[in-house]
């Protein structure tokens, strides 16, 4: 095998194609009249917005629970934290930290229940996770209508009850992180605070994975019987990983919102797991192995494509095919990963 083949083998065709695709987009961009600085800026912002949601995949992949298609559950915890923080009247950047604080107990409780469920369905986690995510989003649709929120910026204006579908976080935690130490060069804005926060959480997870519990987690994912024989409580370790993933999902959505500017309720979180799953896979993870590097590379590549395709495509062929490309790239990547799992280590 020559070195080139080796590289292809190791990276995998889809990943290589996606990487080359993105590279070509950046090369074409100036000729198509797209400003690189704006594109790069957008890519960075979206990297920051999605970085933690992608990170939320890592603990569960490590512990052998597979891809966290149940991410919406964590997002719901984040939504509860965000809305409660606004309801309680917190404003400004402070409301962001209160949101995180309030989201945490929900994330822990949801994650614990979700983990307990996944422990009872070992081997069928991913499909069930998907539907747990879906069901919980649908259930919360009912709850958003019924819960007694009364902050006027959040509820339906015209005499209706229940929360709006999109709530602006302006005056609350809009750009709570993004504006922190932000660097402006012309129209290029580097969202220092957000990027630092994303890197910080990535670092913390990296550190966690090197503790005794984190090591046990990796072992449980690698070979549960081995871990059991070494005195590790498999179910407990898996539950911890699910709680951690769920909590990261909650934080992730809050970071997303502070940059995006809106809280999206109801069916908003429905499909949010898929881009995150696709991103970490593009970054080089598989169904049972993932690293922090995979998170960073994946989030950057995937978000890069999402920002670059519409602008470049639009100016080239006057058609916005980005949605279709997004669907094909992200789901194609997931299928690729699912069909490459070796069943058993034999």
């Amino acid at each position: 095998m020559n070195p080139l083949q080796k590289v292809v083998e190791k990276t995998g065709w889809p990943r290589l194609i996606i990487g080359l695709f993105l590279l070509s987009l950046f090369i074409i961009a100036p000729f198509a009249g797209v400003k690189i600085s704006t594109s790069l800026n957008d890519t960075l912002v979206r990297f920051g917005m999605n970085g933690i949601l992608v990170l939320a995949m890592v603990p569960m992949i490590h512990s052998g629970c597979g891809l966290n298609f149940g991410l919406p559950l964590g997002i719901i915890a984040g939504l509860l934290g965000g809305t409660l923080s606004m309801q309680l009247g917190a404003t400004g950047p402070m409301s962001f930290f209160i949101a995180i604080l309030l989201a945490t107990p929900f994330a822990v409780i949801f994650g614990w229940g979700y983990g307990a469920l996944l422990n009872r369905v070992k081997g069928g986690e991913m499909m069930i996770a998907t539907y747990v995510g879906f069901s919980s989003v649908a259930f919360m649709c009912i709850m958003w209508l019924l819960l007694p929120y009364n902050n006027p910026t959040m509820i339906w204006g015209y005499g209706g009850t229940g929360l709006r579908t999109t709530i602006s976080v302006e005056g609350y935690y809009l750009h709570a992180l993004s504006d922190f130490l932000a660097i402006r060069i012309g129209d290029f804005v580097f969202p220092t605070g957000m990027i630092l926060f994303v890197l910080l959480l990535n670092f913390l997870v990296w550190v966690f994975m090197r503790t005794r519990t984190g090591t046990a987690m990796t072992a449980v994912g690698s070979n549960p019987v081995f871990a059991k024989a070494s005195g590790v409580n498999i179910d407990r370790t898996r539950t911890i990983s699910v709680i951690l993933s769920t909590w990261l999902g909650a934080i992730g959505i809050l970071v997303y919102q502070q940059s995006f500017g809106f809280i999206q309720l109801y069916m908003g979180p429905f499909y949010m797991a898929f881009p995150a799953v696709a991103a970490i896979l593009i970054g080089g993870a598989s169904v049972n192995k993932a690293s922090i590097l995979n998170v960073l590379i994946g989030a950057f590549l995937f978000q890069g494509i999402l920002t670059m395709t519409p602008s470049v495509m639009n100016s080239l062929i006057q058609t916005d095919m980005s949605e279709v490309i997004r669907i094909i790239v992200s789901n194609g990547m997931i299928i690729y990963a699912l069909t490459r799992v070796k069943k058993g280590a034999k």
Binding site: R212, T215, A219, S222, N223, F226, V232, K289, A345, K346
Partner: peptide
Amino acid sequence: RRDVGLLLDEPIDWNISFTGMQMQKRFL
């Protein structure tokens, strides 16, 4: 060995030290 004794996908040093780390909090 393959199913109980080893973490096949992990390096030798992990395999050797894992039980000691988990049970006796060594190698930390």
